[in-house]
């Protein structure tokens, strides 16, 4: 591969970085909120609610992300577009956009994993914490939100940083439903130039850099909120 082509490809792939980042941040932030609801549901006293949350987590952790993306775009999206009244509706522009299918597939997936991480963390908080917050006159929800959840999130930070990296890696699968993020752009250039190693090197370095920054951020957070025990 000539130097000029190498530089041009690098620039073109770098232009796709915002797409990858927006896919990841959007799905992670909505997914995190969903995960909190899922955990609340899985700790609920109602069997049906618990059952729903647990099967959700079970399904999304037990199947490959690729299937989930296909089901979203070529399954659910295909089915939606078979209905004439959906096509006539004002939402059609959004519904026909593959980007939103990728975001929702990634979001549902990360919600399942994050819920499992948070649930584990909450269960690892000693029962005594609950009891002492009750004795201070806090209600169940107050003690959950003010006492337990902050500790659980701190506890979950290392596992969650792994999940964020998994999402960055998982976002590459969006290329399969025509989204031009890093991997999609790389594939487009590859199909035109037939270069393999150079392009994978460029894309791989970008992913590594993103993940390096994420690891650094989480290390900083872990240090900042370190549990100081004497």
């Amino acid at each position: 591969m000539e130097l000029e082509l190498f530089i041009n490809s690098t620039i073109e792939i770098l232009k796709a970085v915002p797409t990858t980042l927006s896919l990841v941040t959007l799905s992670l932030s909505i997914g995190f909120i969903m995960a909190i609801f899922l955990v609340a549901m899985s700790l609920s006293k109602l069997m049906l609610v618990r059952f729903f949350a647990n099967s959700y987590i079970y399904y999304f952790r037990g199947t490959p992300l690729l299937i989930q993306i296909y089901l979203m775009y070529f399954g659910f999206g295909y089915w939606l577009s078979m209905h004439e009244n959906v096509k006539q509706s004002i939402f059609w522009d959004i519904i026909s956009e593959p980007y939103w299918y990728a975001v929702s597939a990634l979001m549902f997936n990360t919600a399942g994993y994050t819920a499992e991480i948070l649930r584990g963390a909450i269960l690892s908080i000693p029962k005594g914490q609950f009891e002492s917050s009750y004795s201070l006159g806090l209600s169940y929800y107050q003690s959950m939100i003010k006492i337990i959840l902050p500790q659980a999130i701190r506890q979950a930070l290392p596992a969650y940083s792994n999940e964020v990296i998994l999402m960055v890696k998982g976002s590459s699968l969006a290329s399969i439903i025509t989204i031009m993020e890093i991997t999609g752009t790389m594939n487009k250039i590859r199909s035109e130039t037939y270069a393999v190693y150079e392009l994978i090197f460029i894309a791989g370095s970008i992913y590594l850099l993103i993940n390096f920054v994420i690891t650094r951020i989480f290390n900083y957070l872990e240090n900042k909120y370190k549990i100081v025990s004497n």
Binding site: I165, K169, S172, L173, N187, Y197, A203, Y207, L208
Partner: peptide, 22 residues
């Protein structure tokens, strides 16, 4: 281990599939 765990699985597969035999 850092590189393989830090890049998407898809890239490793593409690398071997398109370049492995070479």
């Amino acid at each position: 281990t850092t590189v393989v765990r830090g890049i998407p699985e898809l890239l490793v597969i593409y690398l071997l599939f398109f370049g492995g035999e070479n």
